[in-house]
Design a protein around this nucleic acid. Structure first.
Lengths: 325, 325
DNA sequence: CTAGGTGCAAATAATTTGCAGAGGC
DNA sequence: GCCTCTGCAAATTATTTGCACCTAG
C-alpha cells in the first residue's frame, strides 16, 4: 500500500455526497493495517482535525461497512473493531488475551469443513467467524516473536503462489510419470501435453514469486497466512505416489481427474476471494487451466472406458465424474 | 434432564453463601436448554418472583460463569447470551440471522486443524469460538426443518457411540484380516488377541447404544452433532483396505499402530470433554484400551524389525513410533 | 455478629439519534 | 434550493456499581 490516496470513487457506494470530512476519515482509516476501535480512529482523526465529532466517525464507519470498504469485527472486548477490506480478504483471527493483539490466518481446510457441516444441516452459510483466544508467542516467552507484519495482501499472495508452485511441480511429476507408464497411445499423448503445459506454467509462477520477494525481502520469513493441507507436497503428490505403485491406464486418468478437481476448486475459491491484483489474475488463470485439464481428462477417461469396454466387455468401471465450477 | 433440582453443592464454587434467590435463578437457568440473554432470564425469573432485581440476575450469571456452570456466548447481537455447561460440552454454533435461533455442533476435524494452526504460530490456544452465520433450513424453505431438539448430552453420546461402534467394527475387520495374512507366528497371535478384544468391546458398545435409544425414540433421526471424518467407516477402514491390497508383516503392524493412534487420540479428547456420565466412562475406557493396543503393537513392531534385521540385514525400516497420551 | 447477598437507583461505556446549521451539486 | 453531511447534546442499551439493608452461618 504505497499510495497515500485511495480510489474512493470506485469504492464509494451508490448514494452519498463527497465530503472532505468523510474523505479524511476514510483515508486515515484505509491507511491503517491493524484492527481499530472507533475510539482509536477518533484519536487518529483528531491528530489532523480536532473539530471532527465522534458521531461523524461512527457514521462514517457504518457507511464504510455498508459500502464494503470496512468490516466490523468483534474480539469480545465489549466494543467493535474495524478492519479495512481493501486487498484484505476475509480471514480468521488468533487473539492474544495478554497483549490484545490479533493476527490473521486463513485455512482452506477449515473452510471446507465448515461448508460440509453447513450443508449437512441444510444451513445456508453466509459468513463464518473463527477466533482462537490464547497467548501469543511473544507474551509467553520473553520478547522475540517471529517476523510479524507485512500486508495481508502480500502474505496471501506469497502463500498462494507457494501452493500454486508446489501444485505445478507435483502436477508436472505426475503427468510426466503418467506419460511413461500409460500404454494407450491417445492417453499417453494427453499426459505428455499436460506435462508440457505444467512445465510452462511453472516457469511463469516462479518468476512471479521472485517479483514478489523483490518487493519485500523479509517476506519469506514471515509466518504462514494461508493454511492448506494440499500445500505441503502439492495437490498431485498423492496421485504421483499411487502411480509409482503401479496402476492401469484408466486408473491413471481417474487419479488425474481427482487431482485436477481438487486443484481447480482450491484456485477458484481463492481466485475469487483475492481482490483486484496480480495474484487474483494468476489464481483465476490457474483455475481455468485446471478446469480445462479436468474436462480433457474426463473426456479421455470416458473414451478410454468405452474403447476398453468394446474390447473386453464386463469390467466394472468406476463411477464417472462431473465437472464442477 | 429429568430431575427438577440440580446438585448445586457440587457445582458451587469455593466462596459463597446459600441464598434462596440465587438458588432460584440458578435452577431456572439450568432448566433451560437454549441460549438465554440476561433479559430472557429476568423474564423467566419474574414469573416466579417478581421482586428479583435485574442486578441480582446479572450478578448470579457472572457467578455461574466463574463457577463454570454457565458460559457467556456472543452471537454478535450487541449483548451476551448464556448457556449452561452442565453435561453440555463446548461446541460451535450455526446462527440463523432470520429466526435468531442457533444450533450446535462439534467437529473433531476442525478442532484438530485449529490446533495445527495455533501450534504453527506458536500460539497457546485456550479457547476457540466458531460461529457460522446464515439462514437455517426452516427459514429458507417453508416450515418443516429436521427433528431438532433433544439434549446436547444425548446427541453427543449418540454420535460418540456411533463412532466408537464403527471404529470397533473396522478394528475387528482389520485385526481378523491381519491375523490371517500375517506369516510371523508371534505377530499373528497378537492380531488374534486384538481381534477378540475388539469383538468383546463391540458387544458392550452396541448394548450401550440400545440403552440410549430406549431413552429417546427420536434420537436416531436428529441431525448430526459431532462431525468427524474418521466416523464414516471407522478409523481402521483405510487400514483394512490396505491389508486387502497385500502388505508384509511389519507393514501390517505399522498400519495397526497408525489406526490405534488416531483412535486413541479421538477417544481421549472426547472422553475428557464429556462430563460425568456413562458416556465419559465409555470413552475413557476406550481410549485406555486403544493405548494398550498401541503399546502392544509398537513393542511387537520393534521386536519384529529386530528379528528380521538379524535374518536379512539391511532393509530400511520405517521410522518407529512414539506412544502418545 | 459479620461476610456475603440483594434491591434500588445512579453510573458507565459504546454507540445511536434528534435537530439545527453548513456545505456540495 | 434541496438534500446530505456534520456537530452537539441528549437518548439508548446492556451491564456494572455504590450504598444501605438483609440474612445465613
Amino acid at each position: 500500500m504505497d499510495s497515500a490516496e485511495f480510489d474512493l470513487d470506485r469504492l464509494r457506494p451508490a448514494g452519498g455526497k463527497r465530503s472532505s470530512k468523510r474523505d479524511l476519515i476514510v483515508n486515515v482509516f484505509l491507511r491503517q493495517e491493524g484492527h481499530l476501535s472507533a475510539d482509536d480512529l477518533v484519536d487518529l482523526i483528531r491528530q489532523q482535525d480536532h473539530r471532527i465529532s465522534r458521531a461523524t466517525v461512527y457514521r462514517t464507519l457504518q457507511w464504510m461497512v455498508e459500502a464494503g470498504i470496512a468490516r466490523k469485527v468483534d474480539f469480545g472486548e465489549g466494543r467493535f473493531r474495524f478492519e479495512h477490506s481493501y486487498r484484505h480478504p476475509r480471514h480468521f483471527h488468533l487473539i492474544c488475551k495478554t497483549c490484545n493483539r490479533s493476527s490473521e490466518f486463513l485455512s482452506s481446510d477449515i473452510e471446507s469443513l465448515i461448508e460440509e457441516v453447513a450443508s449437512a444441516r441444510n444451513f445456508a452459510a453466509r459468513q463464518s467467524v473463527l477466533q482462537i483466544y490464547g497467548t501469543c508467542e511473544a507474551c509467553r516467552t520473553g520478547r522475540p516473536a517471529a517476523v510479524e507484519g507485512g500486508t495481508t495482501e502480500m502474505l496471501f499472495a506469497r502463500d498462494a503462489l507457494r501452493i500454486a508452485i508446489a501444485t505445478e511441480r507435483s502436477g508436472l511429476e505426475f503427468y510426466a510419470r503418467a506419460a511413461t507408464t500409460t500404454k494407450d497411445a491417445r492417453g499417453r499423448a494427453i499426459f505428455q501435453k499436460l506435462a508440457e503445459e505444467e512445465q510452462e506454467h511453472l516457469g511463469t509462477l516462479e518468476a512471479r514469486y521472485r517479483v514478489l520477494l523483490a518487493r519485500d525481502p523479509q517476506l519469506e520469513s514471515r509466518p504462514t497466512f494461508l493454511f492448506f493441507k494440499g500445500a505441503a507436497n502439492g495437490l498431485f503428490a498423492e496421485g504421483a505416489e499411487r502411480l509409482r505403485q503401479g496402476v492401469n491406464d484408466s486408473q491413471a486418468l481417474m487419479i488425474g481427474i481427482k487431482c485436477e478437481r481438487g486443484s481447480h476448486r482450491f484456485f477458484k475459491r481463492y481466485g475469487e476471494r483475492f481482490e483486484d491484483s496480480a495474484g487474483k489474475q494468476i489464481f483465476l488463470e490457474f483455475a481455468d487451466e485446471e478446469r480445462e485439464h479436468l474436462a480433457l481428462l474426463i473426456r479421455e477417461y470416458r473414451a478410454l472406458v468405452k474403447r476398453q469396454g468394446r474390447q473386453r466387455a464386463r469390467r466394472p468401471a468406476r463411477r464417472p465424474a462431473r465437472v464442477t465450477g
